[in-house]
């Protein structure tokens, strides 16, 4: 029954599948190229002095990125402290009061916030925080990053809690547990893995952001742990060194990129681990 029509349709079918597979494999090419390139270039830069030294003046070798690593941890850590509680609470509200008018506006606001380009967030925080404080500061950088994390954490919290089946809540209320306790001790713990991975993913997303830090945290060639002063950070250092003409600064930038990517990958892996091992069980 070798009907030529059928044969032709089969050929088209196989060709299409081949095309899909081919394009999909091609799509992974940039990722592999980037990761291998950074690994190769950055690996040679990483040694103990690289991680513990401060940057050296132009033209002198042996500089390091210790202040950038510390700076990133402090700035992102502070942002997380600000954004996670607010975001989780907002997510809880959105899920619990989903029909109220305020919740609908809040949902809208979060969607808008999520889309704001990072550079525009930099402008906003410059006006609100940097001008008010009269100076660049790590805190303003954290504020900018917190503003970026907030909608993401709120959304993931809301989505996670949506999945918690209603009967848990109803059973708890039926047993006489007050509403606030039901939320805090029954619903939220049931969704804890999702909320946690949302928070960690939120951190992973902002840890590499440069644009909002350009005119808030500003950068600092020295080690600083004060929130009220400018602070260095890994993405800023990468940007400045990458666009410079000095070879050894390029090397530093590759090393810093490798460190940054390792941190981001680790955070992502932790998230996947939490999601797989710690599934919601009802």
């Amino acid at each position: 029954m070798a009907d030529p029509q059928i044969k032709w349709r089969k050929i088209k079918n196989d060709l299409f599948k081949g095309l899909v597979v081919f394009l999909s494999l091609l799509a992974t090419l940039p990722l592999l190229l980037i990761l291998f390139y950074i690994l190769r270039q950055g690996f040679s830069s990483i040694n103990w002095s690289f991680l513990t030294n401060l940057p050296k003046p132009v033209g002198e070798s042996g500089g390091g990125i210790s202040n950038a690593i510390v700076g990133t941890l402090i700035i992102v850590g502070t942002a997380a402290v600000m954004a996670i509680p607010l975001g989780v609470l907002a997510g809880i509200y959105l899920n619990e009061q989903r029909n109220s008018k305020v919740a609908r506006y809040c949902d809208l606001a979060i969607d808008v916030l999520q889309g704001i380009p990072s550079i525009v967030i930099g402008i906003i925080i410059y006006e609100w925080v940097v001008r008010t404080m009269g100076g660049f500061s790590a805190f303003s950088g954290s504020a900018a990053l917190a503003l970026m994390m907030l909608p993401f954490i709120a959304k993931t919290t809301q989505e996670t809690l949506k999945l918690v089946p209603n009967h848990l809540k109803e059973a708890s209320l039926a047993l006489g547990v007050p509403y606030y306790k039901t939320v805090l001790k029954v619903i939220v713990p049931a969704g804890l893995s999702g909320i946690l991975s949302g928070a960690i993913l939120g951190i992973a997303r902002v840890i590499g952001e440069t644009a909002p830090l350009l005119f808030t945290a500003f950068g600092n060639p020295f080690m600083s742990t004060e929130l009220s002063k400018p602070m260095s950070s890994l993405p800023l250092v990468i940007f400045n060194y990458a666009t410079s003409p000095y070879e050894d600064w390029h090397q530093l930038a590759w090393g810093a990129s490798l460190i940054l990517i390792l941190i981001v990958l680790t955070l992502n892996m932790i998230t996947k681990f939490i999601e797989s091992r710690w599934k919601i069980q009802f």
Binding site: I34, I238, F239, H250, W254, N268
Partner: peptide
């Protein structure tokens, strides 16, 4: 792998693009 693509910071994309 696709998730990883989304995780790479923008400045690193720029850096890689430059070189």
């Amino acid at each position: 792998m696709i998730d990883l693509l989304a995780a790479i910071p923008s400045v690193i994309y720029g850096f890689w693009g430059l070189f």
